[in-house]
Design a protein around this nucleic acid. Sequence first.
DNA 1: CGTCGTCGATGAAACGGTTCATAGCATGAA
DNA 2: TTCATGCTATGAACCGTTTCATCGACGACG
Lengths: 339, 339
Amino acid sequence: MTTTAPRRRASISDVARLAKVSVGTVSNVLNRPDRVSPTTRERVLAAIDDLAFVPNGSARQLRAGTITTAGAIVLDVSNPFFTDVARGIEDRLEEADYTLMLASSDENPEREARYLRLFEEHGVQGVMVVPATPDVEHLETLRGRGLRVVLLDRPSPVDTLSSVAVDDRAGAAAAARHLVELGHERIAFLNGPHTIRQCADRSAGLHDALVELGLDPDRALVEITIPTLNADGGQGGTEQVLALADRPTATMCVNDLTALGALRTLRAAGVPVPSGMAVVGYDDVAFAGELATPLTSVRQPTHQLGHRAADLLLDPDDAVVQVTFQPELVVRESTTGVG
Amino acid sequence: MTTTAPRRRASISDVARLAKVSVGTVSNVLNRPDRVSPTTRERVLAAIDDLAFVPNGSARQLRAGTITTAGAIVLDVSNPFFTDVARGIEDRLEEADYTLMLASSDENPEREARYLRLFEEHGVQGVMVVPATPDVEHLETLRGRGLRVVLLDRPSPVDTLSSVAVDDRAGAAAAARHLVELGHERIAFLNGPHTIRQCADRSAGLHDALVELGLDPDRALVEITIPTLNADGGQGGTEQVLALADRPTATMCVNDLTALGALRTLRAAGVPVPSGMAVVGYDDVAFAGELATPLTSVRQPTHQLGHRAADLLLDPDDAVVQVTFQPELVVRESTTGVG
DNA sequence: CGTCGTCGATGAAACGGTTCATAGCATGAA
DNA sequence: TTCATGCTATGAACCGTTTCATCGACGACG
């Protein structure tokens, strides 16, 4: 095992030399073993073993052109929602013997662009991305250059791009309806910037539902924009809500991490949930039901979302398909109180 | 924008032809712009823009040999502990303009091997890995072939490999001491298989602490091996604990996800926490303090862990360094009760 | 006995970049 | 005027594979 470290990685021609065959034959052993006679094959394999030869992926890809890797860009790897989606992607890709390169854009369009470029340079088969911008022109361009592109967690605004999404308007509307039924007439919404489509959609869904229920959104809805869609954002946003003159009786959060921060802040401020402030989350992550006050949340089919996205990416017909799943409101004590 | 999709990606020679220069010049524009006169540079850049030229990473890498990408393999991307570590890695890598390929082995040595191979084939600079096996010979081999290797969340058993870890024995021991001080004399430990080093270490730490405190580990400790280190594992393990004849009064969990499953199961079974069963987690993930019963847990410096690992990977001297952080027990109500 | 087909192995031409020795060409000094 | 110098641009070699046309050997067959 502790042979002296070779200065240079063994190449296929080193193997060929050692096995006394041509490089073409070594390549055949690697890729079409049946085209090679058993004795030669044996000899080549022995040489490969001897030199600890590992084929150079770049060279292979350069020549062969194809690669069984896909890329995914999510907004934040440390958000369980996205990692559950990633899990769905991985599971589907593995069936096809593909591998996944995962990256997070941090909601930063430049980071997104950088990873897209990296992926393209490395010739991935395709890319699944939760865009950090409303605009997807750059993704259409990418597709124009031959990459598979699947929009993740966001319906495609154009009919040239596949997408796998959950109906965010419906999810937000369901939450709004629930709150209004409970008697809330003034609702805070801790939301991210509308440049992120999910945020814009959830805002619209909330708005529409309120109108439908006969409320004036301008009065009933206070939307607070938070800089980061995590617990810290939830904390800052909640502090703002608590400082409002005409304090809302319910807070809806753009995701469960944000809700976590909200609950923490409310507890620190001594505001009881839900009697002092009802709270609704979004995503229904694993811990939502186990919190001090179990969290009412909008459940999304995360694993399926990823699975289907990978499915589309691998589709041999390269069809453009836009899939929309329906979310489901899971009611718990953060809105209904004990019982 | 909707130009007809080119059948083939533009190459550097297409650019050269259009700009009426040689390929070498185009390459220079890309890599050493100062070596090229402004007017030529301008012309080349215009051509690049025109053709939407994206350099082929494989070709570049094949020739140049180097690449600014690193790989990381963790046990489970959907475990917040690992994603927090990944975040730390990403943040450090970004400073150096490196990119990260993240993958999860699912605690499966074969998957780990497959990703390692993929990474090596693609010539990553190095790899940070939470090994799924106690054995690291394959990683030494990898290092022998010139890849940087950093063991993540696990001290290196050999002095040829760098590692960044947290003292798992100390963490588990602190938890054990805490429980014994509270009067517990019989403790269940929901742990993963000892083939995972962290699991073995935490078991040993627990064991040693009990001995030190004058208890007989054979009586005081019931270790239950769970198949998956997540909430489902915690649920199954807790069901076993509850079925024990001489039921322990405290359960220690190998991580917070497991503890989440344990708490859920205890609640379903009507067992009060901590009076009926104290629970300790490990990792102190974001939601630990916000649970129905806030969870006592062993906090690890996740972000630092990742940051330092990336640091070692990037170290220009390629020194072999073994870093160990100290964990910290965070006491909450799941062991001490209200107050 | 010559011809043909098959099978295995060969060697060279790509793939798309980087790098480097070299050459062309002003410019300024001698 | 000559020559050294510096600046640009060139083109070919090379990186490590895959692929494909070709070739030799050998057995079957007419």
